[in-house]
Structures are given as C-alpha cells and as structure tokens.
Design a binder for these strands. Structure first.
Lengths: 348, 348
DNA sequence: GCCCTCTATGTAAACGATTACATATTTGGG
DNA sequence: CCCAAATATGTAATCGTTTACATAGAGGGC
C-alpha cells in the first residue's frame, strides 16, 4: 500500500509538502503542486482515513444504533440519514444493538474512535435510564422515551396522530372502535394507545378492554387480532391498527371472513407506508415523514458535533398528518398518480 | 478522554502491561491483572478503535455500497449482512454510491483505512468494467454483471426464476403473457426479461413486442403499464411483473378497472416480499432469499479478507423458488399462519 | 555458586497521517 | 545594498495503540 512517504520520496519533497498540496493548506509553489499531483495520481495514492482521523480526531463518521432492521420503515429512515450525512461529508456506521440500557451503552462505547457521534433508536420503555448517559460524544435519541436533559431527542407525534385518526372514525359515526396495539414494551406503541384512549374519552365513549388487542407490529398479529375481534358478541365497527403492517394483516383477515371494508368494518393504520394506497381498499393511515425523521436526527447530531456537545439540549417531535382513503369510507377513489414515482427501487 | 497512558500512570505500570491485560496477550501476574482491570473500570477507559486499527491494520469494519436504499429489499439485505458481520465481530459502514464505474471506484477508495473489505452492489449494466478493478482490498460484487475474474460475485438466479414462473403461467393455459419490465439499464431486470423470453420460446410462443412494457420497479409503473395493456385490442390473459412492487401496482389498476384476478387476468411478481401473501388476491411470486443473499455476500468477503485476497475467485448465484398463490389461480386459499411471525417490526 | 529457562515487566519503534516551528530563499522598500 | 516581510519547504512531535526486544528477578538442575 502506497503511503504519503512513498509519494514524498518519489517527488523528492517532504511529507509535509505533500500533505499541504493534498489538503490545500499552506503555501506551495505552483510547480511543486503540479509535480506532487502528478506523482500521487500515477502512484494511485489514497490517503489513509484511519491515520488521518487519529491525528485530527475527526472520523467523519456517524454511528447509528437500531433495534432491528426489518421493513420499509428502517430502510427509509436510514436513507434520510445517509442523504443528510453524505451532504455534510459524513459516513454512516450502522449497527444493530439490543435496545436495553446495557446494550446501548456497550454499543456507544464501541463507537469510540470510530464515530464522531451516535444516533440511537431505543424504543424500549425500560431504556428510560438511557437519558442520563454521561456520554462524551454527542448522542441523539430517536423514537425513545425522552425526559432527562442529557441528550437531544427526536420523536414522532404518536399520541396526537392516533387521537386524530380515532377522532376521524368517531366523526364517521363509529362508537365501538377497536385498537390493535403495538409491542408491549414499545414506546411508540404506548403513545399511540394513549392517543386512542384520549380520543374516546373526549367523545364520551367508555373504554372497553375487550376492544384493545395485543399486537407486535407484524401482519400476522393484525391478522389474528381481527379473528378474535370478529368473534366478539358485540363486534366493533372500526379498527385502528397501531401500524400499517398490522392493518394490512387485518384487511387480509376481514377479506377472508367475508366482511366488507369499509361498509361493515372501517380500518385505519399508522405510518402511511408507500403501499398503503395500493391496498384493497386503499388504507387510511397516519402519515409519518420517515425520511425527514432520519434526516433531522442527523442534523441535530451534526449540530451537537460542531458545538462539541455543549449546546442547549433539544427535544423535537415530527408532526404527522391524517391521510384518509377508502378503508375508512373517506374519499371515493384516490387514484395513484401514475408517474409520481414516489418510490423508486433501483434494483429488484 | 482517558487513554491507555492515563490508565498505566494511575496503575503505576507501563502501557505495554495495560495493553497485555486488555488483550489477554503475553504473561501478566494475577495481581497486576486485577489491579489494571480495576483501574481501567474505575476510570471508564475505552480503547480507541481508530488507533488500534492503525497499528494492527485491521478495522473490523466492512464497507457496503448500495445504489439506493428504498424498500424492503434493502432493509432485508442489510439485515442479512449485519447479522453475519456482527457474528464475526465486524461492523458495517454503509454508503450509497452512484452505480457507475467512477462512482463505485471513488467510493471504494474512500474506504481505505476505514474498512477491511467492500460489498458493492452495482446493478447498472454499464458498470461492467468494474470487474477488473485492481482493488487492493477484497471486494464482493452483488447483483451485478459478473464476467471478469478479479473479484468474487454473487447474483440471483434471475433468468431461471423468471423462466419457471412464465412456464407455470403457460402450464395454466395462458398463451398471451405480458411482462412489465424493470429499469432499462438494470442487470436483474435484463436477466428476468431473458428468462421470460426463454420460457415463451421453449413453448413455441412467438414474442410480441406489444406485450413487453417498460417499467422501473415502482408500484406506479406497474399501475400505468396495466392501463396500457388492457387497452390493447388483443389483450393478454396473464401479466408477469419483474418485481412485486410493480405487481402490486398492477393488481391495484386491475381492481379499479373491474378486471377479475385471476379469472380474467393472472398476475405474478418476483421477490416474494413479505406482503405478497397479504395481497388481494395473494400474489404468486418468485421467492428470493434476500437475507441469505446479504449473509452470503459477507461470508464471501470475510473469506477474502482472511485469505488476504489471494484466493480463487468465486462466482455464486442464490437460487429462487416458485411460490404459487391465488393471483395465478394456483392454490385455493393459502391462509397466513397466524403465529409464524415471519416478520417482526420492533418499532413502528 | 553458575547458568539456563521462565515469568513479569518496561522501553521504544512502529502505524500514516497533520501541523507547529524552524529554516532557507526570494522580494521589495528605504 | 541591507533588512524585514513574505513565500516555500523541511524537521520532528503528535494522535493512541500494539508489539518486538530488552531487562530483571526467580527458580531449578548440576
């Protein structure tokens, strides 16, 4: 592997001069500048980023800790992060980590010398104590319980979104509205449940525990929750699923049971993944700007890095938007605009 | 930031001894071993991975270059990579890069000193020349044209899978079978088209250019391709979409046009994304083991790394499997097993 | 008591860059 | 023609580790 020394020797100058040319720092005569460029190019010299970051103590890399990597939600959030990181000359070091306190702390430690900051997503409710990690490198907490004041945090307007969707169902005349809940110890899930209850209470509807079904954010969970709901003596007339995957599983179960949506049963989801509009019937959902979530997290982190982590901590929350389609009897027939290419798979 | 020197000073030993204790190398008396462990713990010392990798010239990191990051395909492939990398003590440095030769080369160079090897996915047909990158670090090419002999490569059995699916449609009695093609310059797309044509030719069916529609792997493309197909004077009776997203868009368009699937029009996709079985009707597709694809790519790369890149190059191809559901009139009603939890979204 | 072999530890040279400081050369003002 | 200032370049310390080599006791066989 060719190093800066090899280039210097070949060009008959010192390493300092080579470094100056390559980084555009300090004065160098036009003549040597050209010479060094030529030699470096010919020898196919590539600076060793590891060595560089050791002396500059900048890695130009951001660590990303995720609880898991399934589904469109994560690819989209990573895309938002990568776009923003790359625009600022940073790379992304991605790692899955257990969501509990120990797992996250270990992972953040492992980042020392590898990353200049970390975005950690730890939706587990138990990870609360994370808030006061006395971390030396900047950290942004994503979709996590956020109370303390040690780190920046960014969350989704879960309860507000859920509340609005359930209010929408109520405005359509529904009184018996079921919810398919998210994973038990998940922060987003808990908040969405809170919004659901809030809306019912505001409408003077008493909560019915039988209408709150367990779920875990998978299609399979939505599917089986529906089978239980339609077996009830006093069936609900609407179902709010805590995410779109479960709503899709729910639609599938209703279809097989011969129950018409939205006539006999309204269905709504959360997230508004790209597929929602292609369902049968098109799925009403709470739109979450996932790309923006990732992008904003990185922006916050970069801010923390440039300010060496001594800046006032921020706690932000991205807002959601109701998207009403046919599955709640909303609009006649939203027709997907053929050439909008909202989504673009380059391969497969 | 506390360094190994600080620990050594505090424990009144030399840095060498501290290093030996922390890495379990060389002989150290039980007494000093305990002392150093205690001091390091108390001072919350964390080794600086950058410095370590400079001297050992091992980063324990793998670079991953992807053309884009949309959709479930990518989250799943990344998951396969991360699982395998982590099990072998490696991290993943993920980066989006232009798929052309220059983009990939630049990106690979930027990895010097950051990663011990690179998995590059560059499905662009023009990137052919990539094959002879005289790269110093091991490279595995994923889903890319693979002819040269400079790097390992891993691809999907595209043409075989497509051929089998189209043969299946033919066996159901279809004679006029349309294809919605993938992106024009995409390798996988080209191979799937090849398989489609192969199957037709084998059945003695003459190719009809009108039945080969442009597409780009998006739902929107599938949607609008169908509108054109059903406007033909001599309509096809079956549609093979080059991926599931387009097939889903196609189903949506057919539904709105009042055309029954599979009675009036059979529909098949490629990839078998988790959602396929939840469509209405459940979608027949060519199953691709995406997780395995990522996992295997990393295995190949790790092999190249341990053998210092002088090993016989391999060219592997993961096999596909036909999954027949109702959209091609296949089986009565495949009912999703409620508790199989094939897919598990931890958050949202 | 001598020498050899272990075991335990320390010293210092790497790894590949950046950069403060020193030095040499040129330029220009008086 | 001299000296200060500006320009161009080199020397060497530094970042935080690992590790080859050196050193110093301790133990044991003769």
């Amino acid at each position: 592997m060719v190093t800066i020394k090899d280039v210097a020797r070949e060009a008959r100058v010192s390493v300092a001069t080579v470094s100056r040319v390559l980084n555009g720092s300090g004065p160098v005569s036009e003549e040597t500048r050209r010479l060094i460029r030529e030699v470096a190019g010919r020898m196919r010299y590539v600076p060793h980023s590891g060595a560089r970051s050791l002396i500059t103590s900048k890695t130009q890399t951001l660590g990303v800790l995720l609880p898991d990597l399934y589904g469109e939600f994560f690819s989209e959030i990573i895309r938002g992060m990568d776009d923003t990181a790359q625009r600022n000359g940073f790379h992304l070091l991605i790692s899955r980590a257990y969501a509990d306190r120990h797992g996250i702390e270990t992972a953040i430690r492992a980042m020392r010398g590898r990353a200049d900051g970390v975005v950690a997503m730890s939706p587990d409710l138990d990870a609360e104590s994370l808030l006061n990690l006395p971390s030396t490198i900047p950290v942004v907490l994503l979709c996590s319980v956020s109370r303390g004041n040690e780190v920046d945090s960014l969350t989704i307007q879960n309860s507000r979104g859920a509340r609005e969707m359930v209010a929408h169902l109520i405005s359509r005349g529904h009184k018996r509205i079921a919810i398919i809940k998210g994973s038990p110890r998940n922060y987003d899930a808990a908040e969405r449940l809170r919004g659901y209850r809030m809306a019912l209470r505001e409408a003077g509807i008493t909560l019915d525990p039988l209408l709150e079904r367990e779920g875990d954010f998978t299609e399979a969970a939505g599917y089986s929750a529906v089978l239980k709901l339609i077996a009830l003596k006093n069936r609900p007339t609407a179902i709010f699923a805590a995410n779109d995957s479960m709503a899709i599983g729910a639609l599938s179960a209703l279809r097989e049971s011969g129950i018409a949506v939205p006539e006999e049963m309204a269905v709504a989801g959360f997230d508004d993944i790209p597929l929602a509009r292609y369902m049968d019937p098109p799925l009403s959902s709470v739109h979450v700007p996932i790309w923006e979530l990732g992008a904003r997290a990185v922006e916050l982190l970069l801010h923390g890095i440039t300010h060496k982590n001594d800046h006032p901590r921020r706690r932000e929350r991205v807002s959601t938007k109701l998207v009403i389609r046919r599955s709640t009897g909303g609009v006649p027939a939203e027709r997907p605009p053929p050439q909008t290419l909202k989504r673009k798979l380059v391969s497969v």
